[in-house]
Design a binder for these strands. Structure first.
Lengths: 214, 214
DNA sequence: CGGTTGATGTAAACCGCTTTCACATGCGCT
DNA sequence: AGCGCATGTGAAAGCGGTTTACATCAACCG
C-alpha cells in the first residue's frame, strides 16, 4: 500500500508531501492494530520511502502518534460543536446530539480516538495537543453550562461536574463498545448510541434539566 | 531488578517459580510503560533467566499479557463482590461501595487494569480470560438486578441496561482520570471517587432506586 | 545564469529482539 | 537409588528498527 498521493506522485527523488502520507499510513495501521501495532519503519515502507526518511518530519514514532492525536482532537471538537449546535433546539436534545456525535467520531475514526485516549506513552508535554484537547472538552463544558442554566434556582448542580459525568459516560461507552475488541467487550442488547442516549436521559432527568415528568 | 522471590532464590540451575516471577516483572513494566512497553526478552532479564526461558511458560508475549489480564479480572471480581457485599446495607449504598471498589482496583493495580482493557491486541479467543471477565461483569449485573428490584412496578428500567450504564460510568472515570496520563487528562475539582459517587447518585435517583426526595 | 545552501531522502551498518535447536540440570516419583 | 519429565541454557539464524554519513534537489541570490 503506497500513500504517495497523486501530485508530485513520487516520480522524483523527493516525495512531495511525505508528512501527510506518513500520517495517513499511520491512521490505517493504528485502526488495524492499535497505536502500539506499527513501527516507524513500517509507515516509511507504506509511504514508499526509506526507513530513515520519517525522521526528517517527526522526532520519533511517538511524535507521529501525537500529531495524529492532535489532528484527531481538532476534528473531534468540530464534530462535538456541530452536534451541540449552540444548544438548539433545546439543551437536552442538543446534548443527546452531542453524544451521538461523540460515538460517531469514535466509530468513524477509531485510529484517531485510540491515539487520543490510549496513545501508549505520556503525551502531556505537547502544548499544541493539550490545547486541542482543551478545545474538545470545552464544547462539553459549555454544553453542561447551558444545560445547568436551565435548572431552577437552588440545588443547581455544578456545571463542571456535570460536564465530567457526560464525558465519562460517553467515553466509557465508546471505549468499551466501539473500536477494536478488548477483553471486557460483550454483546449488547442495544446499540451503543441507544445505550448512551438512554444513559444521558436518565442522568439529566434526575437533574431536572428536561421538561419530562417523573 | 530481579524477581527471583526469596524461597528457592535461584541458587540453583532452576528458578523455582519463574512463571510467577515473569508475571510480577511484567506487572512492574506495564505499570511503568504500558502493555506495549516491554519485550519478552526484557522480562526474562528482569527475572534473571535466559531469553529462551519464558517460552517454557508462555507461548509468547501476548500470552503473558493475557495471563496478567486474567489474574487481574479474578481479583477485580473479588473486589467488586466485596464492595457490593450482597447489597448491604441497602442497594444504593452497596452500589456506591462497588463503585469505590472499582476505582480502588484501577488505582492499586494500574498494570492489571491496562492489560484488561487496553491489551494492545485482540485477546478474545482466550476462554479462561473470557470467563474471568464475565465473572467480573456478573457482579455489576447482579447489583443492577437487585437495585432494579426495588423499583416500583411499571416503568422499571431493564437491569442489563442499568448495569451497562454503571459500568460505563465507572470505566469512563477510571480510564480518563486514573492510571498513566493520557491526552484527555485534566485537573479535577474533586477526586475521581467523589466524581463517581455523585454520578451514581444522580443516575440512580432518576430511576427512583433510592429513598431520597425529588 | 551559475553557485550555494538547506531541506529532504538514501544506503548501509549496528543493535536488540524473537524464535528455535540441541543440550544440561535436577525435582519428584517409584 | 535411579528414571523421566519439566525446566533452564547457549548459541545461532533471521528480522526489523534505528542511526549516521552521504546523495539529491529546489530555491534563492548575486
Amino acid at each position: 500500500m503506497r500513500f504517495t498521493n497523486s501530485p508530485p506522485g513520487r516520480d522524483s527523488y523527493h516525495h512531495g508531501n511525505l508528512r501527510e502520507a506518513l500520517i495517513a499510513a499511520a491512521l490505517v495501521m493504528i485502526a488495524e492494530r492499535g497505536p502500539a501495532g506499527f513501527s516507524f519503519a513500517e509507515v516509511a515502507r507504506a509511504a514508499g520511502v526509506s526507513p530513515a526518511a520519517p525522521y526528517r518530519h517527526f522526532r520519533d514514532r511517538n511524535a507521529l502518534i501525537a500529531e495524529v492525536a492532535r489532528l484527531g482532537f481538532e476534528r473531534f471538537a468540530a464534530d462535538l460543536e456541530a452536534g451541540w449546535n449552540d444548544g438548539r433546539p433545546d439543551p437536552v436534545t442538543a446534548i443527546e446530539n452531542c453524544g451521538r456525535a461523540y460515538l460517531s467520531f469514535a466509530r468513524r475514526e477509531p485510529a484517531s480516538y485510540a491515539a487520543m485516549f490510549e496513545p501508549g506513552f505520556p503525551l502531556e508535554d505537547d502544548a499544541a495537543l493539550l490545547r486541542a484537547s482543551e478545545a474538545a472538552f470545552g464544547v462539553i463544558r459549555r454544553a453542561a453550562d447551558a444545560a445547568c442554566a436551565v435548572h431552577p434556582g437552588p440545588g443547581r448542580p455544578p456545571a463542571m461536574m456535570v460536564a465530567l459525568h457526560l464525558w465519562a459516560m460517553a467515553h466509557g461507552i465508546a471505549s468499551l463498545f466501539i473500536g477494536r475488541p478488548s477483553a471486557g467487550r460483550r454483546r449488547l442488547p442495544m446499540s451503543p448510541e441507544d445505550l448512551l442516549e438512554a444513559g444521558l436521559l436518565v442522568y439529566m432527568q434526575s437533574l431536572g434539566l428536561n421538561g419530562t415528568q417523573r
